[in-house]
Design a protein around this nucleic acid. Structure first.
Lengths: 103, 103
DNA sequence: AATTCATTTGACAATGATAGTCAAATCAAT
DNA sequence: ATTGATTTGACTATCATTGTCAAATGAATT
């Protein structure tokens, strides 16, 4: 998967590719145009529900978009942290440990 | 670093190792005993500031504890997500991409 | 078994972050 | 200059987090 674009950029590119207006897409999401504008410019975060609806409206792979959304949420948590990279690695290990335990 | 213990477990073990009471440690943190009790049993999350203070009080490696704390925060974001593991990997890649751009 | 002290539990309040609306400002194309 | 799309910013509503407090439970000890 591409990792060099923000969720907002992806959404905007694909909305424009489909020739849809902010207004039109926002209406389908049942939110104000202003919010969608902010989401596309990464000034606000979308909710998971909005991401799912958006992937339907814009015909994007839903799982890819959820991964995109989740990874952005993760990055947001550690964006100002010096130890962020280390924390990510440890989180992966712990994740493995947890999954292994479950099985 | 060990990845098989929760922050709470580490805190409790080390508090007891030092023979300190919840009451005593909570007082130093300037919070109610109840909260510390909940933190140690992973019923509540500590704040970063509390983790830092706790690592001083219990003489634990501060950076390790912050990594522990951050990784738990990350895991919390994806705990109920099927795509969590993928999201973690993508987050790492994006992190690398961002850091590389900065340099 | 009554007392005492530590810890836990749960209801509630205060605070802070997130999501949203709305109206006005800006931008782009006629 | 007008029109329609987008952006901006001030403001509100909603929700999650962090905390207090009092009562309940647990674990010795006399």
């Amino acid at each position: 998967m591409k990792t060099d674009k923000s969720t907002g950029e992806i959404l905007r590119e694909n909305r424009e590719k489909k020739g849809l207006l902010l207004r039109q897409v926002a209406a389908k999401l049942d939110i104000d145009t202003a919010i969608l504008s902010k989401i596309e410019r990464s000034e606000r975060k979308a909710t998971k529900e909005q991401i799912i609806k958006l992937s339907e409206i814009l015909e994007l792979n839903k799982d890819d978009m959820i991964v995109q959304y989740l990874s952005e949420k993760i990055l947001y948590e550690i964006k100002d942290e010096e130890l962020g990279q280390k924390a990510l690695k440890v989180a992966e290990q712990r994740m493995k440990y947890i999954n292994q335990k479950k099985a």
